[in-house]
Computed example of a mutant assay.
Amino acid sequence: MAKFACLPSAFVFMLVMAFAIQLSYAGREGSLRPEECPKACDYRCSKTQHKNPCLEYCNQCCAKCLCVPSGTYGHKEECPCYNNWKTKEGGPKCP
């Protein structure tokens, strides 16, 4: 029985470390797989009144950068590719 006494604490430690590693990459460039882009963009565009254009551009940006900034607005510094992609007119391409 003594062999298994440290098992619960080791399991909890592994869960905490896995969660910390996942958080450390959240929102960073290249942190998403292409199939994760629609869900990330759904959240990113959830509070805008211009949902269809937001989703279209967000998904384009995510496909290129494999990153969507956290939250529904701002935080673009988390994804330099997403932040620096500009329109022909020089405005931000990504929402």
Results as ranks from 00 to 15, higher is better:
residue 32 L to I: 05
residue 1 M to L: 13
residue 36 E to P: 06
residue 3 K to Y: 08
residue 60 Q to P: 08
residue 94 C to Y: 12
residue 15 L to Q: 07
residue 52 N to Y: 08
residue 53 P to I: 08
residue 27 G to Q: 05
residue 6 C to R: 10
residue 95 P to Q: 03
residue 89 E to H: 11
residue 33 R to W: 08
residue 83 N to F: 00
residue 5 A to R: 11
residue 43 Y to I: 05
residue 74 G to W: 13
residue 4 F to M: 13
residue 77 E to M: 01
residue 58 C to W: 03
residue 47 K to Y: 11
residue 67 C to K: 00
residue 38 P to M: 05
residue 19 F to S: 12
residue 22 Q to L: 14
residue 40 A to F: 09
residue 10 A to M: 14
residue 83 N to Y: 03
residue 28 R to W: 01
residue 75 H to T: 01
residue 55 L to T: 13
residue 87 T to Q: 00
residue 16 V to K: 06
residue 77 E to I: 02
residue 67 C to E: 01
residue 50 H to A: 12
residue 70 S to L: 15
residue 80 P to K: 00
residue 75 H to R: 09
residue 33 R to V: 10
residue 40 A to D: 02
residue 48 T to C: 03
residue 50 H to D: 07
residue 95 P to S: 04
residue 6 C to L: 14
residue 40 A to G: 02
residue 38 P to R: 06
residue 3 K to H: 09
residue 17 M to P: 00
residue 3 K to C: 07
residue 49 Q to K: 11
residue 65 C to K: 04
residue 70 S to Y: 10
residue 7 L to C: 10
residue 38 P to I: 03
residue 83 N to G: 01
residue 49 Q to R: 15
residue 49 Q to A: 13
residue 66 L to G: 01
residue 64 K to V: 08
residue 20 A to R: 05
residue 90 G to Y: 11
residue 64 K to P: 07
residue 85 W to R: 01
residue 95 P to D: 01
residue 12 V to S: 12
residue 57 Y to M: 12
residue 72 T to S: 05
residue 22 Q to K: 15
residue 58 C to M: 05
residue 36 E to L: 09
residue 74 G to A: 09
residue 82 Y to N: 00
residue 6 C to T: 06
residue 94 C to L: 14
residue 72 T to N: 04
residue 83 N to K: 02
residue 78 E to C: 04
residue 17 M to D: 01
residue 34 P to A: 02
residue 36 E to T: 00
residue 30 G to P: 12
residue 55 L to I: 15
residue 15 L to A: 10
residue 29 E to S: 07
residue 34 P to M: 00
residue 78 E to H: 06
residue 7 L to D: 10
residue 29 E to H: 06
residue 65 C to T: 05
residue 11 F to V: 09
residue 76 K to V: 07
residue 14 M to I: 05
residue 37 C to G: 08
residue 52 N to G: 02
residue 44 R to W: 09
residue 23 L to S: 08
residue 4 F to R: 14
residue 11 F to N: 06
residue 49 Q to G: 10
residue 80 P to A: 03
residue 13 F to C: 07
residue 78 E to K: 07
residue 63 A to C: 06
residue 37 C to I: 15
residue 35 E to K: 13
residue 88 K to W: 12
residue 31 S to D: 15
residue 22 Q to G: 07
residue 43 Y to G: 05
residue 19 F to T: 13
residue 34 P to V: 02
residue 42 D to H: 10
residue 12 V to H: 11
residue 40 A to Y: 09
residue 47 K to T: 14
residue 41 C to Q: 05
residue 47 K to F: 11
residue 89 E to W: 13
residue 70 S to E: 14
residue 57 Y to I: 11
residue 6 C to P: 04
residue 53 P to K: 13
residue 75 H to C: 02
residue 70 S to K: 14
residue 20 A to Y: 12
